[in-house]
């Protein structure tokens, strides 16, 4: 294999690994797509690169341009790595309650962190970024929640990779977040095989919704609406921190070291496997475990870890 010309060329083509030994149903195989193998450490390298290349093609990014983006971590980290390589500046609006490693990674790539209130979660980061982008029109606002390059990165990358490695797939499970992964992979797989079922996993909204003054303050990502998310998804289920951490540990037990949201997606895959007669479930392990070492997720007392997870954005 010839050498890669740039670290950016290592984004994508992640491996699928069989974790069926953890399946609750002997007639259902489960495969994990290890997105932590991306050079920036998460699945978000894909939309980050797609959005930047899209903006470059559209002439929105001059050399040395400044970008702003709301992110609870992974998109910001992916963007920060790519901006470092390409010579752009990046400001990330980051809720205060993320793991210390997410912050450290943003800092090491040279991103400027603008804090948003932790109690407002991702909603608060989105709101503040929109405000700052409006006040500073010279900054380029890629806006992952509303940028069609986000689902397209998965339609053109993640989806075809899964199809090539595992055409037997019957169910696809991933975290919801911006909805880019589910919409892009989901649309690709359903075009190839309409009976494929899409399961969205989400964390409990918990105290994050307490800050809403009324229901009209709610938020649905524009890409979810633009891509017919309601019609595309087949199931949406909440996975709490205890299940997320327990399944993160069980994956560790078979040698798969991944982040806590990957444990949540695995819990969703296990729930799916227990409710179907037979099939092949593919789920997205969005990142590796490195960024969560400080949470004690693998070694701490489970009750303590769960309690801490309730106040930190881990998903």
């Amino acid at each position: 294999m010839p050498p890669y010309r740039s670290i950016i060329d290592l984004i994508g083509n992640t491996p699928l690994v069989d974790v069926s030994q953890l399946s609750p149903n002997p007639r259902v195989a489960i495969f994990a797509k290890l997105e932590g193998q991306n050079p920036g450490g998460s699945v978000k390298d894909r939309p980050a690169l797609a959005m930047i290349e899209d903006a470059e093609k559209a002439g929105r990014l001059e050399p040395g341009a400044t970008l702003i983006e709301p992110s609870s971590g992974n998109t910001g980290i992916g963007l920060a790595m790519i901006c470092r390589v390409k010579g752009y500046r990046l400001k990330v609006v980051l809720p205060t309650n993320v793991s210390v490693e997410r912050r450290q990674l943003l800092e090491l790539w040279g991103a400027e962190i603008i804090e948003s209130p932790g109690a407002e979660g991702s909603n608060g980061a989105v709101r503040l970024a929109r405000k700052l982008a409006a006040e500073n029109p010279e900054w380029v606002f890629l806006y992952q929640y509303g940028n069609d390059a986000n689902p397209r990165a998965h339609y053109e990358g993640t989806g075809p990779e899964i199809w090539k490695d595992c055409p037997e797939v019957t169910h696809f499970v991933a975290g919801l977040g911006t909805s880019g992964t589910l919409l892009g992979v989901g649309r690709f797989l359903k075009e190839k095989k309409p009976e494929v079922q899409l399961w969205a996993v989400e964390p409990p909204s918990g105290e994050l919704v307490d800050g809403l003054r009324n229901l009209d303050d709610g938020y649905i990502p524009p890409i979810f609406l633009a891509n017919g998310g309601d019609e595309l998804l087949d199931r949406k289920t909440v996975v709490g921190p205890r299940d997320s951490i327990e399944w993160t540990r069980r994956l560790r037990d078979i040698g798969v070291f991944c982040g806590i949201s990957s444990g949540a997606a695995m819990a969703g895959a296990v729930k799916c496997a227990s409710q179907i007669a037979d099939g092949v479930v593919v789920f997205v392990a969005a990142d590796g475990g490195w960024k969560y070492l400080s949470t004690g997720a693998w070694t701490g007392d489970i009750d303590d870890v769960v309690e801490r997870a309730k106040s930190v954005i881990y998903f």
């Binding site: 989105v126 977040g177 938020y219």
Partner: peptide
């Protein structure tokens, strides 16, 4: 009953 909010590690 839960209001829709932006969630996840986005």
């Amino acid at each position: 009953i839960i209001p829709a909010v932006a969630g996840g590690a986005a």
